[in-house]
């Protein structure tokens, strides 16, 4: 028979277990803060939006073509703000995706080692410039430059803000895409070179397809940054709500509307106050959708090498 008592040397160490527990608890708390914050944000946005939709029918919100929540004749057509967001984002992506991809291909497949190590930090610095500086850069440098080409261009416009926003997003696209391409194993490149392929053929036909999922994530992140960008647009694109698909016009976006209204003194609980939350919810839904698309793309093109 084995004696029922536990030998003193094998006994559970209370302090050791306690310490482990405490640390585990701290780690869990730290991790739950981010989850809790997200949940809280969504809760508040949804709660306040429900109040909004009790006063404004969803149909008007989606299909009205005016956004004048603070006027006596109030209209709540979110499409007005969305048009500004979409146009400025499209302009930005027309800059960031091609340039970012080309830079990534160059750095990953063509650049000599020393240049790559030098160029990458500089590029990442672009992403670290405060956006307010980009905003003024757009307003007082890019816009006058563009006005030399189109003299009719207004001082505030989506084009100039979008272009500068594109430059800001380049490092997000290029850095992640480059990481994805660098992660493609050398054996695949060698296989391509051994077939008599040139560097460009190898980069475009083997490395990029192999890195599709990472490149897709980079693009999605770029799009999310564009949709959520506020300062550049607030400074350089004007803040009047304007339903337009023309980048040469000034317009408010979802984000700049929130800034503008949040800075004013709106009575708590007024309809104008509620619009901040609906606009926020719309923005959140857009980025959520982008994240889901990104997730699907990543799953679909999982690296299989």
């Amino acid at each position: 028979m084995i004696p029922a008592t536990t030998s003193a040397r094998l006994k559970k160490r209370r302090t050791r277990h306690l310490r482990e527990r405490v640390i585990e608890g701290v780690l869990f708390l730290a991790a739950s803060i981010s989850v809790f914050t997200t949940v809280a944000i969504v809760y508040i946005l949804v709660k306040e939006s429900v109040v909004f939709f009790q006063q404004v029918p969803l149909k008007d919100f989606l299909f009205d073509t005016q956004w004048t929540p603070l006027f006596d004749d109030a209209h709540f057509g979110i499409v007005v703000l969305l048009s500004g967001t979409v146009v400025s984002s499209v302009v930005a992506l027309c800059v960031a995706i091609p340039l970012g991809t080309i830079i990534a291909i160059y750095l990953s497949e063509f650049a000599p080692f020393a240049l790559r190590e030098l160029a990458k930090p500089f590029l990442e610095l672009l992403g670290g410039v405060p956006t307010i500086i980009y905003g003024y850069f757009a307003l007082i440098f890019v816009t006058p430059l563009l006005q030399k080409i189109y003299p009719d261009l207004p001082g505030f416009n989506l084009l100039s803000a979008g272009l500068v926003m594109g430059i800001m997003i380049i490092p997000y696209v290029s850095s992640l895409s480059e990481d994805a391409m660098r992660a493609v194993p050398m054996s695949l490149r060698e296989g391509s070179y051994a077939m008599g392929a040139t560097r460009l053929q190898t980069a475009l036909k083997v490395v990029m397809p192999a890195a599709t999922s990472g490149i897709a994530s980079a693009y999605i992140l770029g799009i999310s940054r564009a949709v959520g960008e506020t300062m550049i647009l607030a400074v350089a694109a004007g803040m009047q709500p304007n339903l337009t698909w023309n980048p040469l016009e000034p317009a408010a976006t979802v984000t700049t509307y929130i800034v503008q209204v949040a800075l004013g003194d709106l009575p708590h609980g007024s309809i104008g106050y509620q619009t901040i939350f609906v606009a926020g919810l719309s923005l959140m839904l857009m980025t959520l959708m982008l994240n889901i698309v990104g997730h699907i793309l990543r799953k679909k093109y999982r690296e299989a090498y």
Binding site: S192, M195, G196, P209, Y305
Partner: peptide, 27 residues
């Protein structure tokens, strides 16, 4: 182009079977 190579670890490209074989011709 005249001297091909087969590697230690199989390294098919992330493409279809057909496109893998057609690669050298497309190049």
């Amino acid at each position: 182009m005249r001297i091909s190579m087969v590697f230690q670890k199989p390294n098919p490209f992330p493409k279809s079977i057909y496109e893998n074989v057609a690669y050298g011709l497309r190049v």
